[in-house]
């Protein structure tokens, strides 16, 4: 009664693509938001210095 496993390689690849893809997108979004905030912070600090 030895059955061969169903060929589900495509679904396996799709699954792990989604897992790592979504995590990567989230990581990139963290990095991008961090970079934008740093840029904004630097700009604001420059403005503050000019004001003084």
């Amino acid at each position: 009664m030895e059955t061969t496993p169903a060929n589900t390689l495509g679904y396996f690849i799709a699954g792990y693509t989604v897992i790592f893809g979504t995590m990567l997108v989230y990581l990139v979004s963290l990095v991008v938001r961090h970079r934008n905030l740093m840029q904004e912070k630097r700009m604001l600090e420059d403005l503050e210095k000019e004001k003084k």
Binding site: P5, A6, G15
Partner: peptide
């Protein structure tokens, strides 16, 4: 896995 194959690893 014996019946489901690779997709079980998801």
């Amino acid at each position: 896995e014996r019946t489901m194959g690779l997709v079980q690893k998801v």
